[in-house]
């Protein structure tokens, strides 16, 4: 299926469903006080809302700029802001949140960074959109929607209020 702008799901509706699914997922896995960590910037917006909605005490924000694997092609992002995680993530169950899952490289970078803060008990992955084209053996545990893009197409989440999806 080739995607056009009109085929794009409404991100607000998608988010509402995602929040319900994450709640159910946490209950089914019996996770006690999981730590929500969002990847800058889209994942961080989603994580902020999820934290409030699920009434969880803490939120972590991850900036993977220092962990990307394409420094030799692109250099450092000019928007590197650094991460903000709670003092200890040791023995925590982590819900890692990102907006768009594609190659899996962002998630790999995020997991590498998390382990430099400590050793969590588990990491579960939540993404608003899965657009396929995976290059690493990484899958999300909870996904808002799966869509296919035509080669060369990009998708971007803008926000945080309201959330909007744009094709480029």
């Amino acid at each position: 299926m080739n995607t056009s702008v009109s085929d794009l799901p409404d991100p607000e509706a998608l988010y509402q469903q995602l929040a319900l699914d994450v709640k159910q997922f946490i209950a089914s896995k019996n996770l006690q006080q999981p730590l929500i960590i969002g990847i800058r910037t889209g994942g961080a917006w989603l994580a902020q809302r999820l934290q409030k909605e699920l009434a969880l005490p803490e939120l972590g924000i991850l900036d993977i700029s220092f962990y990307r694997d394409d420094f030799d092609e692109r250099g450092l992002s000019a928007h590197a802001k650094g991460s903000d995680l709670p003092d200890s993530i040791e023995d925590r169950d982590i819900i890692l949140v990102d907006d768009v899952l594609m190659s899996g490289r962002t998630i790999r970078a995020a997991m590498n960074e998390i382990f430099d803060y400590g050793r969590p008990t588990s990491i579960q992955l939540v993404c608003l959109l899965d657009i396929g084209q995976r290059q690493l053996p990484i899958q999300a545990d909870v996904v808002g929607a799966k869509i296919e893009l035509i080669a060369g197409q990009k998708i971007k989440l803008s926000g945080p209020d309201p959330l909007a999806l744009t094709l480029g």
Binding site: F66, Y67, G82
Partner: peptide, 24 residues
């Protein structure tokens, strides 16, 4: 200002258990 902002982020990475980042 970009240098100072980036330095601020590196101050926080040095407060972690693992002080290194794999950038270089």
């Amino acid at each position: 200002t970009e240098i100072l902002d980036l330095a601020d982020s590196f101050i926080s990475t040095q407060e972690r258990a693992v002080k290194k980042v794999p950038l270089l």
